[in-house]
Design a protein around this nucleic acid. Structure first.
Lengths: 342, 342
DNA sequence: GCGATGTGCAGTGACGTTTCTGCATATGCG
DNA sequence: CGCATATGCAGAAACGTCACTGCACATCGC
C-alpha cells in the first residue's frame, strides 16, 4: 500500500487517520490510492497497537445450554436491538457471548468492555473480567456484591406502586400478587413493594409464589391464587406468561375480566394487545435499558466522567388495556410508539 | 509472564497451545503460573499473527435506520439464537453488524467471515466483503448475482404446495393468496408456486398484493381479498401479520373460521397458537437455518470441503391448528417442541 | 546571509503472539 | 567409545499499525 502510493508507511497512517503534518494534496492522493486498491487497515494490528478493539460483549446469563432463555425473548430481542444501535452510533460493535460459553471463546476475543444482563450472584465470568480491568456494566442491580462498574435497572418499587394505585383506582378492593420463589432483586423488590403497600393501605396481602423458570408452575400458581377463599378481585403477575395463565384460570372459575377480576402483568409481548380481553402490561422498556447500559459502558471505556454516578434507575411504562379497567378507556391510553420513544 | 514462570516466551506459547516438544512437567508448571497470574494471551496479537479472529459477522439488511425490522423479530431472534449456539460450539463468536452500519465500524472489526440475512440485490457491503476474500454465506437465495460463497434457504415452492394441498384436503374449493408487491425471491417463488398450482388443478387464481413493509397495507389487502365477488374459501398469507389481519377481516364480513374460511399464514409467532381460533402457520424453522448457515460459513473459513455444494434448501414445517381444519384435529398435530428439533 | 521557525515527510520501535530455526544436552545403537 | 537421533528449550523474525523522533528543505525576519 505504502509502495503503491509512493509514500512511507507513516504517511499512509497519517493520511488515513487525519493526523500528522500533511498537505491536503498528499492526503487526498493516499486516500484515492487506498480506495482504488480496496485497502483496509488491519483491525487486528490496530487493536494490538492501540489496545482498543471497538468491541463490546453482550452477555446473558444462561440457565440451560442455550444462549438465551425463552421467556426472555421479547425483552432480550428489544434490548439487544437498542444496544446494538447505541453501540454502533458510537463506533462500537456488539459481540454476543453467553456467560456459559467455552472459556477459549471468551479469551479469544478482545473486548473493550461488557454488558451483562441479569448477572447471578458472584458470576465467575464477571469477576474474571473485572480482574482483567475490563469495564462491566450490568442490566439489573448486581446481586451479591458483584464488582460491576455501573448498572441500570428499572424502578421496580415505583412500578409496583403505580400498578397497585391504578388497580385501586379501577375499583379493586383486594389486590393479589403472583410472584416468584427465587431471591433475585426483581422478585424481591417487587414483592416487598407490594407488601409495604398492603401494610400502608391496610389490606391483607394475598399472593402465591412459584419457581419462575418453570413454565408449568405458573399456571398452577395462577389457579391456586384464584381458588383461595379470600380470592382477590385484581391480580398483578410479575412474569411474562402470567397474563395468559391468569386469564385461563379466570375462565375456569367463571370469572369475567375485567368485570370480576382486574389483570395486569409484566411483559413485553405484543400479543397481550390482542387477547380477549386485551391485557394491561407493565413494560420495562428494554430498549431504553439497552441504550443506557451501552452509553454507561462506553463512557467507562473512554474514561468519560469517571467516578460519576454509576447507578441509573429507569422508569417503566404501564400500558393500560381493557383487562384493568372497569370501563372501557375513553381515549387511547397507549398511543402508537413514536420512533424515539424508547 | 515468561519471566514469572522462568521460561522463554516460546515455551509459554507452546505450553499453552499444546504444541512443541515439552515434557508434561513444564507444561503443567507454565499453566499453573498462568492461572495464578490470571494471564490471558492477547487476542489481538494472536489475530494479527495467525490471521484468524474467531469472529463471524451476523448482518441483516436494514430498511430503516434501526438494526432489525420489526416484522422479522421472531424469525431473527430465533435464527440469531441458533446461529450463536452453532458458532460457539465451534469456537467462534458472533458480531451483530447491520449492513447499514457506519463504514468505520465495519473496517474496525476483523471478521473471519459473515452471515448475511436476506441480502438485497448487489448489496455493496457483501460485494466489498467478497472482494476482500472474506467468506460470505447468505440466509435466503442471493438476489441478482451476488457473489456469496454459499446460501441456505427454505424450499418455498414445496412449502406453498404443501399448504395448498392441505387446504384442498380440508375442503377448500377456491384458495386465495395474500402476497407482496416486492420482487424478492421469497415473494416471487411463493407466488409462482401458487400460480402454477392453480394452473395445474384448474383453479382461477385469487390473490391480492401489497407492500409487505407497510404494516397498515396488510389489513387493507386482507379486506380487499375477502370483499371480492369471487371470494376464496381459504387463504394463505405470505407474511407474519396476515393471520390477525385476515381473522379481523373475516370477522368484519361475518365469516366464521374455519367453517366459512380456512386460514394459514407464514409466521413464527407463538401467539397464533392462542388466537380465537388458533391459526395454522408455516414455520420456516429459523433455528435450523441459523445453524446451517453458520456451519457452512465456518466450513468455508476453515477450508473444509472447499468446492462442495454451496446451496442448501431446508424444509419448512406446517403447524396445523384449528383455522385450517373443518373438523377439530383428532390428535395433537403440533407436538411440543423437542429440545433439538430445530 | 544567517539563525530561527515551520513544513513535509521517512525511519524506527514497540504492541504480544506464533512459528521456524538452532543449539545444547541426553539417549540409543553397534 | 563415537556417531546418529531425540529431547527440551531459547532466539529471532514477522504480522500491520501507530506514535515518536529526526532530517531535510523552505520560509521568514532582520
Amino acid at each position: 500500500m505504502a509502495a503503491a502510493a509512493g509514500v512511507s508507511i507513516t504517511t499512509v497512517s497519517d493520511a488515513l487517520n487525519g493526523k500528522g503534518r500533511l498537505p491536503d494534496a498528499t492526503r487526498r492522493h493516499v486516500r484515492e490510492v487506498a480506495n482504488r486498491l480496496g485497502y483496509r487497515p488491519s483491525a487486528a494490528a490496530r487493536t494490538l497497537r492501540t489496545g482498543r478493539s471497538g468491541l463490546i460483549g453482550l452477555t446473558v446469563t444462561t440457565y440451560g445450554e442455550e444462549p438465551f432463555t425463552f421467556t426472555e425473548f421479547a425483552y432480550f430481542a428489544e434490548m439487544a436491538r437498542a444496544a446494538t444501535s447505541a453501540a454502533l452510533a458510537r463506533g462500537y460493535a456488539l459481540v454476543i457471548l453467553p456467560a456459559s460459553s467455552r472459556h477459549d471463546v471468551w479469551s479469544n476475543v478482545a473486548l473493550d468492555g461488557t454488558v451483562v444482563i441479569d448477572p447471578s450472584d458472584h458470576d465467575p465470568v464477571v469477576a474474571d473480567l473485572v480482574r482483567q480491568g475490563i469495564p462491566v456494566v450490568s442490566d439489573g442491580r448486581p446481586a451479591g456484591n458483584l464488582p460491576v462498574h455501573a448498572w441500570v435497572d428499572n424502578d421496580h418499587e415505583q412500578a409496583v406502586l403505580g400498578i397497585l394505585e391504578h388497580l385501586a383506582d379501577s375499583g379493586a378492593r383486594r389486590i393479589g400478587l403472583l410472584t416468584g420463589t427465587s431471591t433475585d432483586t426483581y422478585t424481591r423488590l417487587s414483592t416487598t413493594a407490594y407488601l409495604n403497600w398492603c401494610e400502608r393501605v391496610g389490606q391483607e396481602p394475598v399472593y402465591e409464589s412459584y419457581p419462575a423458570h418453570d413454565p408449568c408452575a405458573g399456571a398452577v400458581a395462577a389457579d391456586r391464587l384464584l381458588a383461595r377463599p379470600d380470592r382477590p378481585d385484581a391480580v398483578y403477575g410479575l412474569f411474562d406468561p402470567n397474563g395468559t395463565d391468569l386469564l385461563a384460570a379466570a375462565r375456569r372459575y367463571g370469572l369475567r375480566v375485567p368485570e370480576d377480576l382486574l389483570l395486569v402483568c409484566c411483559s413485553e409481548r405484543a400479543a397481550y394487545a390482542t387477547t380477549e380481553p386485551p391485557i394491561s402490561t407493565l413494560s420495562l422498556k428494554p430498549g431504553r435499558i439497552g441504550t443506557a447500559v451501552v452509553q454507561l459502558l462506553i463512557d467507562a471505556i473512554e474514561g468519560v466522567g469517571a467516578g460519576r454516578p454509576v447507578a441509573q434507575v429507569m422508569p417503566t411504562d404501564l400500558i393500560v388495556r381493557a383487562s384493568s379497567q372497569r370501563r372501557p378507556p375513553r381515549t387511547t391510553v397507549s398511543p402508537p410508539r413514536s420512533p424515539d420513544d424508547d
